[in-house]
Amino acid sequence: MNDTVDLNRMRDTAFTAQVEALSGQNISACYQCGNCTAGCPAGFAYDVQVSQIMRGVQLGLKDRVLRSRSLWMCLSCSTCSQRCPNNIDVAAVMETLRHMARKAGIVSVPKMEKFWLSFLNTVRLFGRSHEIGTMVLYMLRSLRLHTDVDLAPTALAKGKLGLLPHIPPGGAEPVERIFTRYKERAQREGVRP
């Protein structure tokens, strides 16, 4: 980790250009003030702070950036984007990096991906999110059987956890079709769905 960063060898300008193109953000506008890091509510859980991720993208340190756990701990709350003095949508850059990492087969925090897949599965099945379904699927996938179970009785009592899924009037098929389309495209492009 603390080896000298050989900028001749490790600098990948194509990576920087790709992040700029996919996120629609001008990465060179970042002057490293640190406002994004200062305001990040998930910063305590980051291995690399968001301003450092921006720096890594500027330098084209692809591997280091895509392997960071921070990409997966980001809450997408967009506080960073709101505070950026240079109008960079930093959250969009984080989102872009997350997709790039996943397509490259790098998932530094696997249980995060498991949670997402669980959530998306319920959406595909019912056309809308279903909290209990998400919980059950996540427990099965992650084998973390006790995670947040203690919250369930309170949430149930307050009506925050519907036992039965809400299916929209048109049924779940239209949403299902979106998932199918995405899966087909992923197969065409040879990336992980």
């Binding site: 490293q32 003030c33 640190g34 406002n35 890091t37 200062a38 305001g39 990040c40 910063g43 305590f44 690399v48 702070q49 301003s51 450092q52």
Partner: peptide
């Protein structure tokens, strides 16, 4: 006062 020390890489 909450902020960042970017040299330290910490909040």
């Amino acid at each position: 006062v909450k902020g960042a020390d970017t040299l330290l890489g910490e909040q």
